[in-house]
């Protein structure tokens, strides 16, 4: 007896639909790209716009490494098609703060040693900015719950929690005054 694995459509794959022009507004700048329609926003950012700060961890929306902001809302960029985000305002880690003028979250991540290998860090920071924009998280428990979609396998969670909490607290003080 032989065990054989059979592909679903051996030799019959259809020619792919052609790539088409897509304009993405990323970090305040328009990028004119030629993309196949099924290109994820993550691949568009990394492979076509040359912005490799956003990381691919699982490509299934399960690790959070690819988190970016779309119109201020955090999103797993591997789970959305680039063409769906035409006209939206996309912010990646490269668009948060500048050299010598870091975003408060970036500074807080440094101050609290909120990473080890750094691979999940861009996603953590974008996710934290999204969390702040949502305005829902105030306590440590709320931050734990609402940041739990961003996996850090190095386990730098104590630092991540402290960093995010610090910026959330400053934000709420600023809002009250």
């Amino acid at each position: 007896m032989s065990g054989t694995s059979t592909p679903k459509s051996a030799g019959q794959s259809l020619p792919p639909p052609p790539a088409a022009p897509v304009t993405l507004r990323i970090n305040g700048q328009d990028h004119h790209l030629e993309l196949a329609p099924w290109t994820s926003l993550l691949d568009a950012l990394r492979e076509y716009a040359g912005l490799t700060g956003t990381k691919k961890g699982c490509d299934h929306g399960q690790c959070g490494a690819c988190t970016v902001l779309v119109d201020g809302k955090r999103i797993n960029s591997c789970l959305t098609l680039a063409v769906l985000q035409e006209g939206a305002d996309i912010t990646t880690i490269e668009g948060l703060g500048q050299e010598g003028n870091l975003h408060p979250l970036q500074q807080a991540f440094i101050d609290h040693d909120a990473f080890q290998c750094g691979y999940c860090t861009p996603g953590q920071i974008c996710s934290a900015q999204g969390l702040i924009n949502e305005g829902k998280a105030h306590t440590e428990d709320e931050i734990r719950e609402l940041m739990s979609g961003n996996i850090c396998r190095c386990g730098a969670y104590v630092g991540i929690l402290n960093a995010v909490k610090e910026v959330v607290d400053k934000k709420s003080i600023a809002l009250r005054s």
Binding site: G53, I93, Q106, I110, D113, F115, Q116, P122
Partner: peptide, 11 residues
């Protein structure tokens, strides 16, 4: 702090 920090937080 970790000297790789600046690169990590800026992607």
């Amino acid at each position: 702090h970790n000297l790789d920090a600046a690169g990590h937080v800026r992607g």
